[in-house]
Structures are given as structure tokens and as C-alpha cells.
Amino acid sequence: MNPARVLVIVPAHDEEASLRATLEEVRALPACAPAGASAGAGRAAVAGGRAYRVDLLVVDDGSRDRTAEVARAAGTPVLSHAVNLGVGGALQTGFRYAIAHDYDVGVQLDADGQHDPAFLAALLEPVLRGECDVSIGSRFVTPSGYRAPLARRSGQRLFAGLVRLALGQRIADTTSGFRAYGRRAMEHCQFDFPRDFPDAPLLIALARRGFLLREVPVEMRERQAGKSFYTLGRSLYYPYKNLLASLMAWLQRPAAL
């Protein structure tokens, strides 16, 4: 069996301050192709009993700063959105690229340094083993030092509860952006994906369509630079939007795959 082709997709919106360090960190993985090298040039590593190689892709989501140049200087392919679409849109572009270039797995890894590439192998394991379609790097499976503000914590509880109610499966960290998507999941998501936050509604929609989800314990770090996606205005709109979208995803008739 050929080594699986893994594409690490880094959505970046005005992340020039932290992007270089993030890219270098991924590059430091032996499985990752060196800067400027052609795709699949890394040394094959093994996870879940299957060899894999890693390539990098930056999706510059309408940045006004030097994000795209930082990525180019790091020898990484860059896809630039002319306008800002949000995390969901950036990922969707990444999925389309991954499918067009025949990747088996797409991994979302944030540019701000929250996601530690050291956990990439753990994240890939269940997907490469074929045990699930989407694996989610979770902060809450094992206790970690991470503690969110009260409002956000109760929100996380609410949506974790909703996902559990809808799917009968416990997914503690519904907002984690550190995920690996298998080929079939990417093929579905390239056309049907939340525009802004790929959170609880996405998980419910995917599971309702028969995709298997799995949580993998990871540790997350504080963001190294840039500002959080969540502002006051969004923090009012977000719960409403997510609640509505979750219900809609839940009501959807499960489609046979």
C-alpha cells in the first residue's frame, strides 16, 4: 500500500506574526516535505499501521497583512481568497485543493500556534486505520491545564450536550479546530460546509450522514499571536446561529451513503 498522502491545511487570516513559526514547526516533522520541495517529498512515517507523508498548504483568507508572503517565503503553496470568507470557507478551499491533488487526509491546523503538530500522528491514527472519517483533537478527553472563561465554558457544555443528544455520542470538544478529515468526508465537505464556524452543527450533520467521528486527546497551547476569533458581537450571534444550525442538521433526514 502506498503511503497515505496527508495535507495539513492552515487557514490564516492576518496571521503574519505566528504563521512562520507554525509552518516551521510542521516542517520539523520528519514526514513533512521540506520547504519548496515537491509534494510528498517527506520521509514516510507510520501511524495506525499505515505509512504517510505530509504536505503543507496555507489558505490565506483575505488577509490584509503579509500572511501570503510569509507563507510563500516559507516555500508553502498558498491559496489566497480575494475577500475574507471565515474559517469554514478557508477549509473548504483546502478540501477542494486536497481532492484535486489526490490527498487521502486533510488536517486542519490553526496558524496561531494553538495546535501542536506533535499530536498530528495521534490525530491521524484512527483515520489511517479506517476507524473513523473525522478525528477531532480534543482538549477535554484527558484533563489539561486549559480553562476557558465561564461564558465560553457553559457554551461548550451546551453544544457538547446537544451533540450528545443528537448523536448519542459524547464529543466533549465541539469547537476544536484541530481535526483530520478522511477522503470521503472531504469530498462531502467541499460542497456542504458551514460558512463561518465548523463546530457542533457540522459534527451533527456529518454524523447524520453516516460519517464516523472520533475524539483524540491532545494538549492545546495559548495562541501565540493575533487575536481571538470571538468578539462581543459574535459571542451574542454565535450561540443563536449554532443552536439553529444544529437543530437544522439534526432534523435533516439521514442520507444513506
Binding site: S80, A82, V83, G89, Q92, Y97
Partner: peptide
Amino acid sequence: YENHALTRELALLRH
């Protein structure tokens, strides 16, 4: 939605 799809397609084509 159409705008989003076009922006994504444009990014891929530009690349």
C-alpha cells in the same frame, strides 16, 4: 453562497 463558492474557485485557479 454563490459568492463564497466563486471566491474559493478563484483562489484555486489563481494558484
